[in-house]
Every structure is written in C-alpha cells, then in structure tokens.
C-alpha cells in the first residue's frame, strides 16, 4: 500500500505512456478545470468525461485493479469534505455533484501520475518558467521521499523492538524522537547533497 502511494508511476509500453508529457499534463489540467467549471446538474457531461477517462485507462494498459485500489485509498478524503455539504438545506444535490466532480478529477490525476514519470513533469514545469529553486526543491523532495519514509519506518521499528511497555505517552514520545532524528539526519544529508551538487558543477 505504501509502495502504491509512494511510486505512482507504473511502466507499460502503451500509446498513453509514449505521449509527450506536456500534452498529458495539459490534457489532465484542462479536463480538471472543465469538470470543475461545469454546472452542478450537467450529468451527461460528467458521463462523457468519465467515458473518456475509462477509454484512456484502457489504452494505457495499467491493471484496472491497481487504479481502483488507488481511487479507493483516496476517496475517503473526498467523502470527508463532501459530507459537510450534507448538513445544509438542499445539500444532497450538492453532495452528489461534488462527489462526481472530485471523483472525475481524482481519476484524471491518478491516470496522469501512473503514466508519466515525475522527472518529465518537472521538465514541463521547468519549460513553463517555474522558478528553478522550486523545481530543484521538488526534484530533491521526490528523490529523497521514499528514502526518508523508509528511514523513519526503520527507526520506528528499531525503537518498538526495544520498548516493552506499550504506553501511549511513550508511543508519542518515541514517535516524536524519531521525527527529531529524521530532521537531524535530513539536515546532515542536505549538507552532503550540497557538497555533491557543487562537485558536479552546480551553482546558485
């Protein structure tokens, strides 16, 4: 499950994967904006967008189970916010249309991230003129994300295997200590990364 979330890209050789990244990003963003700006009761248009997404998903040859699992993982967040709209007069219609809209948008972004390498998305951002510092930060974050998550899990496991009384206070303290160690380690790693970047000719 954690692998499913941390490395969304799923390689297959399909026309959707080979399609230029800029086109996919533009397409996904356009679709999302169209869906959001549609009137609340345009059910036919929602259906059309959904059919288009199913077609693209079929073309991309990504296992349907994988896509469905990801959607199910993400849907609770949508439901949580949507449930708030049920508490007002006439909320059911708002709730249903919100649900349809966000599910469609969710599908398009899940498809985009499953068929496009993040480095390609970064290249698109770079070409669009996003400030280099932001692109560098995004690239570094993506590079070290799974590493730090694994490191945190490892430290947590090591701590748990040495702690025999499972008190809640202790659990909080040990999780906080893991986080603190993680910060110390990532700041040390940042200095090593900086040295490596300089050694390869990086300049501010």
């Amino acid at each position: 499950m954690h692998q499913l979330l941390l490395s969304p890209y799923h390689h297959r050789s399909s026309p959707v994967h080979r399609f230029p990244a800029i086109g996919k990003v533009a397409g996904a963003v356009t679709l999302v904006f169209t869906v959001v700006l549609l009137p609340r009761t345009a059910w036919a248009a929602y259906g059309a967008c959904g059919a288009a997404l199913v077609l693209i998903a079929a073309l991309s040859r990504i296992p349907a189970r994988r896509l469905a699992k990801k959607l199910l993982l993400l849907e609770p967040f949508v439901l949580g916010v949507a449930a708030l709209s049920l508490l007002q007069p006439g909320g059911t219609l708002v709730f249903l249309s919100m649900l349809a809209k966000s599910t469609l948008c969710l599908c398009s972004i899940v498809l985009l991230s499953s068929t496009t390498r993040f480095s390609d998305v970064l290249r698109v951002l770079w070409r669009l003129g996003v400030p280099p510092l932001l692109v560098t930060s995004l690239a570094l974050m993506y590079r070290y994300l799974s590493l730090l998550v694994d490191e945190a899990a490892r430290m947590h496991r090591a701590r748990r295997s040495r702690t025999f009384s499972p008190g809640r206070v202790l659990a909080w303290r040990s999780s906080a200590t893991v986080a603190a160690h993680l910060f110390v380690r990532s700041s040390e790693r940042a200095e090593r990364v900086y040295a490596a970047m300089c050694a390869r000719g990086w300049r501010t």
Binding site: L133, T136, S137, L138, A139, L140, M141, Y142, R143, Y144, L145, L147, L148, V149, E151, A152, H156, R168, A171, W172, S175, V178, A179, L182, F183, S186, S187, R189, A190, E191, V193, Y194, M197, T204
Partner: peptide, 24 residues
C-alpha cells in the same frame, strides 16, 4: 545560505515522512 538550499527539498521530504508517523 547557499549550502542550506538543498535542505528545502530534503525538509519537504522530511515533513512528508513525518506526516506518515502515527500518534495513537
């Protein structure tokens, strides 16, 4: 300071990793 610039990307990864720690 320039030598702390990579820290922004790493701190972002750190925040994300720290968000995954559970507090019962």
């Amino acid at each position: 300071p320039p030598r702390r610039v990579p820290l922004i990307g790493l701190a972002a990864a750190f925040v994300f990793a720290a968000q995954m720690l559970n507090f019962p």
